[in-house]
Simulated assay, not measured.
Amino acid sequence: MSKAVVELLAKDLNHQGGVFCPSPVAGMQTWNTHPKVYLDVGRAGEAKCPYCGTVYKLKDGEHFDGHH
């Protein structure tokens, strides 16, 4: 199980403030990982994948404003 932390820029999030795991941003290939799940990073500034434990978080100083 991965304990990776993926730091994101606000522009990496979709217009709702989320990302999907597995993610190309994290260097994952979808064929050998778990089902795709949506993670809401914009609301709390970070989110943890329930499948692999990867944490996606905004880099220091990054803020999601919901208007991309």
Rank of each mutant, 00 (worst) to 15 (best):
G61S: 08
H67Q: 09
K48E: 15
G53Q: 12
A4W: 00
D60W: 00
E46A: 13
G61W: 08
T54R: 03
D65A: 06
K57C: 14
A47L: 13
T33V: 06
Y56T: 05
K48P: 00
F20M: 03
V55K: 13
Y56H: 06
Y56A: 06
E46G: 00
H67M: 06
V41E: 12
E62C: 06
V55Y: 03
K59R: 15
N32Y: 03
P50C: 11
G66F: 07
G61K: 07
N14G: 05
M1G: 12
T54Q: 04
A44I: 04
L58Q: 07
G66C: 07
T54E: 05
W31I: 06
H15G: 01
C49F: 08
T30V: 10
H15P: 04
Y38A: 14
K3D: 15
L9E: 14
G61M: 06
K48D: 01
G45T: 13
S2D: 11
G27A: 05
M1F: 04
V37F: 11
K3L: 14
T33D: 10
M1V: 07
A44K: 15
R43L: 15
L39Y: 12
G53M: 08
G53I: 07
R43S: 15
Y56K: 03
A47R: 08
G45H: 13
V41G: 14
E46V: 00
K11I: 08
H63S: 12
T54A: 12
R43D: 15
H34E: 10
V5C: 02
W31G: 04
E7H: 08
N14S: 09
K59I: 02
H68Q: 06
M1P: 04
W31Q: 10
H34D: 12
T30P: 02
V6R: 01
G53Y: 07
L9V: 01
G53S: 06
V41A: 14
K3F: 10
A4N: 08
A44R: 15
G53P: 07
W31H: 11
P50Y: 13
H15W: 03
A47F: 11
Y38Q: 15
P24D: 05
V41H: 12
E7D: 10
T33M: 11
L58M: 10
T30C: 05
D40C: 13
P35H: 14
C49R: 03
G45Q: 14
A26N: 00
C52V: 05
L8C: 07
A4L: 12
V55A: 09
E7C: 00
A44V: 13
P35E: 15
H68D: 10
Y56F: 15
P22G: 01
E62F: 05
F64G: 01
C52P: 05
H34Y: 12
S2E: 11
N14F: 08
K36Y: 02
N32Q: 11
Q29R: 05
P22M: 02
V37Q: 09
A10P: 03
D60L: 09
G61T: 09
V19L: 05
L8D: 02
G27M: 01
A4T: 08
T33S: 13
